[in-house]
């Protein structure tokens, strides 16, 4: 553990990212205390630039809702969607990849063809179509993002399994008669976890970006304030009110940046032998 932290801390960017990320999570967690009013509430005059009205230091939107409150509450949606959809995607990906890599042969071909098929369809378009068909809601957004995100995990896990399944300790487990499920879960999976964790951390970032894009296009959950929604709603008034789209976009930028940096730090800490090559 200490070794892990030392390696992680050697990457200054990662430490910076972690600090920012903790800040964003704190903002999300304490949004209701920092901004007790609903972010949908019209607390000021419409179209106020940052600082023009006391209490609205990031300005107000077209209806007089506080931008800062929106950003704080929007952090919740971003983090929620990012984490949950990644968890689902990793779940699907690990199962598909493990099955394909462990059993090989026809099963492997079938699963990998299926994965390839999914990767053929541009993910942004597929996600949008899915959300529209399932009707826009936080659940449908999570499902859609998970469905378009799992293939890389599957490929990664399959690769790990292909190499690991011939190792001595797996052979040994097989010789003593352990079941396939048990071997997968207790022998191979734990040993292939490091790259999965790194990939998952980066997927959270991608999921946040994708969620914001969906909300930007007007397919977000209307009951939850989100950053993408704020930009989408402010897009049309960008001539008159730059702050309405600038700040939420910057919030996405800094959050995703932080997660990516943390991901690289994790990579350094978990996969020291790969660290030199950088991320591909």
């Amino acid at each position: 553990m200490i070794e892990f932290w030392t390696r992680f801390a050697r990457n200054k960017g990662a430490v910076f990212g972690l600090v920012v990320l903790v800040g964003v999570i704190a903002l999300a967690a304490f949004a209701h205390m920092l901004f007790p009013q609903s972010p949908w509430r019209m607390t000021g005059a419409p179209f106020q630039p940052p600082g023009a009205q006391p209490g609205h230091w990031l300005g107000t939107d077209t209806l007089g809702r506080d931008i800062a409150a929106g950003i704080a509450h929007g952090a919740r949606v971003s983090i929620l969607v990012g984490l949950v959809s990644t968890a689902v995607a990793v779940g699907i990906g690990v199962i598909a990849g493990a099955v394909a890599g462990y059993f090989g042969g026809l099963i492997d071909t079938a699963v990998m063809r299926f994965t390839e098929f999914f990767q053929t369809i541009p993910s942004v378009v597929l996600a949008i179509v899915l959300v529209a068909i399932l009707q826009p809601s936080i659940e449908s957004i999570i499902i859609a993002i998970a469905i378009v995100s799992w293939p890389p995990v599957a490929r990664l896990v399959r690769g790990e399994f292909l190499t690991l399944r011939t190792r001595e300790f797996v052979e040994a487990a097989r010789v003593i008669g352990q079941s396939d499920t048990r071997i997968i879960l207790t022998q191979i999976l734990p040993n292939s976890l490091s790259p999965v964790i790194v990939t998952a951390s980066l997927m959270v970032a991608t999921a946040i970006l994708l969620e914001s894009a969906i909300a930007f296009l007007g397919l977000g959950d209307r009951n939850m304030m989100s950053w993408g929604y704020m930009i989408g709603a402010a897009r049309t008034v960008i001539r008159e009110a730059w702050w309405m789209s600038f700040f939420p976009g910057f919030a996405i930028f800094i959050t995703v940046l932080a997660i990516n940096l943390v991901g690289e730090g994790l990579n350094d800490a978990l996969n020291p032998r790969l660290a030199r090559q950088g991320r591909q």
Partner: peptide
């Protein structure tokens, strides 16, 4: 580039 929403 990795962190910037393309539409933004």
């Amino acid at each position: 580039a990795y962190a910037t929403p393309i539409y933004w």
